[in-house]
Simulated scan of single mutants.
Amino acid sequence: MSGRVLVLLYHLTEDEAGIETAYHQVSAELAGVPGLLGNELLRSVHDSRAFLVLSTWRDRAAFDAWEQGSSHKASTAPLRPFRDTENPRALGVYRQIAEHGDKG
């Protein structure tokens, strides 16, 4: 069983260029953060205003250490204006318990 953790941040905006710019800015800030395996910006095929930032972490301890660190809020600030305030759970943290398929 893998200890990987997936973090989902829900965003809602009509400003595609703005959220893409903010995503790339935050991603550059997070480069090299211990335990962060990668992240991606996803856009809903059902609602063009709905975006999701999905980040993959080595384990819960690595995510918690970063989230509780002093640079967390400043490094993610560019994405904050796009947060989906209509969603009572704009953040989801999931632990991987199983997987199938080709990773390539």
Rank of each mutant, 00 (worst) to 15 (best):
A50D: 09
L36D: 04
R43L: 01
E86W: 04
G3T: 13
H24F: 05
T85A: 10
V26P: 01
W57I: 04
A31Q: 10
E67P: 00
S27M: 10
M1D: 15
E67W: 00
A31I: 01
V7N: 12
D102E: 11
D15W: 04
W66L: 11
D47K: 14
G18H: 11
S27W: 05
Y94R: 14
R83D: 10
A28E: 11
A61M: 09
P88H: 05
L79N: 07
G32L: 02
D64Y: 00
Q96F: 00
W57E: 03
G104A: 14
R80Q: 14
D102M: 01
A28V: 02
E29S: 10
R4V: 07
P34C: 06
G3S: 15
V26R: 05
F82Q: 13
R80S: 14
S44E: 04
L6C: 11
G38N: 09
S2Q: 12
H11M: 10
A50K: 15
A17T: 08
D102V: 00
R60W: 00
Y10K: 15
P34K: 05
G92Q: 13
A50G: 06
L36R: 06
E20V: 01
L41H: 04
S55R: 10
E14N: 10
F82W: 06
A65G: 03
E20W: 02
L54W: 07
